[in-house]
Design a protein around this nucleic acid. Structure first.
Lengths: 238, 238, 238, 238
DNA sequence: AATGAATGAGCATTCATTCAT
DNA sequence: CATGAATGAATGCTCATTCAT
């Protein structure tokens, strides 16, 4: 996927056992990379923890970088999937924003600075390919919220005079800083409170500062629409 | 402050010539570190670009780490100083926020991704001492805005229900993301516009909401929620 | 015992092939260290002589110091073992002393100044751990003779008014000087003769003097002194 | 004296001031070499302690090795001179032996392992020139005792069946071991006692094991000679 | 499928020594 | 006479990666 095809005696047809191996390696690699960061992690340590040889690791992955990329990719895929599934279950734009913010903080905080440090830190890698990959993963991860915001924007519920990416940067940038601060200061904040506060401010920020009149007008419209729907599908009378 | 006293073959009383050398080395080191990040930069490359030997570099600095720290420190000192001097010249809290935002974007953008990448990336270093140093420098750098916000908060001009650090994280986190996006996508935004937009949203976010309006909004939200539920599960009328 | 457990990329379960490699490296390292001494020997030279890379050497030994320690340890173990086995086969205290002296001279002389220089020279290393290790090895090496002397001392066959360590120092110190002289002057003495002569003198030295003779000697000495004084300062006769 | 002439801008005609400088440098160099040994000492440290630049040191000495050689040479010259002057003041072969032994132990012990470690350790240097120089200095240093022993040997007071160098090796070798033990174990022995014990054993060792008759014959001869002298120079009668 | 063994390419750091000024 | 400044040449050590078996 990422690795350039290169003449190696690598996995061709992955058998069942192989897939298990791959997963084992990825699991341990995640641990190691999370503990030390990319540069300071060694393939030796990963192999040792697995009780296998370095060579075996290299027969499943193109190299250290490949391995780390996969680790990050899988992690992002996991949390992206969760978001994709759960966000639609939440109702209302503001509630969805709050859900995403809360979930993000919980997720990045819960593994004890491990993946957080790796993803936040190594996402800033000097390696362009690396950074680009992570950027792609991030795009998927942020997509659920982006869709919500886009829709809300079209509906006028969110300011239309702001580019969507800027909204995203504000949401995720704020959180990244909060997380990094917590990490550096070894002072984890109360997540629920922080999530509520952040959501409150972010919502205010991205919400149109429309004059009372406009707001009331939209309110009127909403209620009217609702009434129409109720009329079209009259509830059965007893 | 930075250099730990250690038996080094170093200049102590810096002559005029020496100071020039120090500046030369720092300048080139800034370039190199900016290009490759700390880990991938080599003392050899720095020396080569200067046309001097590695030994000379080591005679002016304790080591690679020391050199990089100095580079970052000087850069932060420069931009911190500017901010400390200029922010008071601007009138009004909102104007000051805009000034800081604009200045930050301009500064980090202008050096062609260099220091930006280094500072943003290496601030996330696995090395705790490193990270701690940068954290300290960042504190000074963000202090001017923090003072402004703190005063505004006391004056009731800024929301008092939000911790100051959270405000800071939102301001600088948003910008960091904007910058990083621009960097990764090689797609520099229009700075003036972005600054204006960010300031607009941030200001709204950190500013107290007009109480009646806020209450109205909450009412609106509640009704909307209720309507949604009605639509999905039309309740039997009594 | 020697190698400190440390995250090294090392062989753990030594295969047959590996053991051979280890022995090869130790053999060459012995040569190199013997030729140049510890400080001036380089891991590169050792690797080059073996036709392998430095990295390979480092994959079998923790480092230069470890390698050298092993070399010295093995050498001492070899000659200690021989002594431990052979000394009991010799009968009589004097014969045993002679055996040890002779063996020591032969052993240290035969390898063409190599290990002799290394062990004698590097035992004087500035590195305390190094010196301590060698001191320990020396203790084992000198133990067989020490046991013999201790027993003889208890039996009254050897002077009881002298501390055992002093006896040891006299025995081995004498030989060390003899060897070093031979080394520096490139003038190897006849070992058999030297061994006999040394043994003769040492035996006399550590053996109790015949009491009456000793008393006589002291009387002689006193009179001689008195006479000398009389000659220098002829006293007026009463 | 030792250094090969080489095109350098070095001392040509030593002025008075220069000689002082030379002495200062030598004094400090002695300290440094004594503290760390040759290899671990640096020209930088020597210069720093003097408050002068390394370059200045190099303008007075050919190099580090030269400097160290001079230090050792001077040290040996000092103690050699003392011995040359004092030994003749002591009367009797045994007393002289005791004097030399005692003096040697005191001298090497008193400077707190410094020069002792340097001379004993670096005398074993892998550098042949170095070792040869020290061998030469040692020869001068041991000469006084050698003369005494040679004379005693000619007089039959010392065993004539032993080569002189072997006697020397036994005397100085024993002491060297005693000293080195003390050094390594940080356990300085009582010097007076050790000197007495060593002298006792050494004297026994190098003294002919002549039968009582021979000894008595010599005693008779001695007394007769003394009487003759007294008769030739009759003391003035009152 | 797994790995034991080997290594090429670095890399930060040290230090004696030189020389123009 | 002194030295500030510079450096060439090492040096021990690490690690991702390869490949024959």
């Amino acid at each position: 996927m990422t690795a350039i095809a290169k003449p190696m005696r690598k996995r061709e047809a992955l058998g069942v056992r192989s897939e298990k191996r791959v997963r084992e390696i990825l699991a341990v690699a995640r641990e190691v990379f999370a503990e030390h960061g990319y540069e300071k992690s060694t393939t030796l340590e990963i192999a040792r923890r697995l009780g296998i040889s370095e060579a075996t690791v290299f027969s499943y992955f193109t190299g250290k970088r490949d391995l780390c990329m996969q680790v990050i990719k899988i992690w992002y895929d996991e949390i992206s999937l969760v978001l994709e599934q759960d966000v639609p279950l939440v109702d209302g734009t503001r509630a969805r924003l709050h859900f995403v913010v809360h979930k993000h903080l919980v997720t990045l905080m819960q593994d004890g600075t491990g993946m957080c440090k790796l993803v936040l830190g190594e996402g800033r890698s000097a390696d362009d390919a690396f950074a680009a990959l992570i950027a792609g993963l991030k795009r998927r991860y942020t997509a659920p919220l982006m869709k919500v915001l886009a829709a809300a924007q079209r509906a006028g519920e969110v300011r239309q005079d702001m580019p969507l990416p800027l909204l995203r940067d504000m949401v995720y940038g704020s959180m990244e800083h909060v997380l990094w601060d917590a990490m550096v200061n070894h002072n984890p904040p109360d997540i629920a409170t922080t999530a509520a506060q952040l959501t409150s401010m972010l919502w205010t920020a991205i919400t149109p500062e429309d004059p009372p009149l406009e707001r009331l007008a939209r309110f009127h419209h909403d209620v009217a629409q609702a009434l129409l729907q109720v009329q079209d599908n009259p509830a059965p009378l007893p």
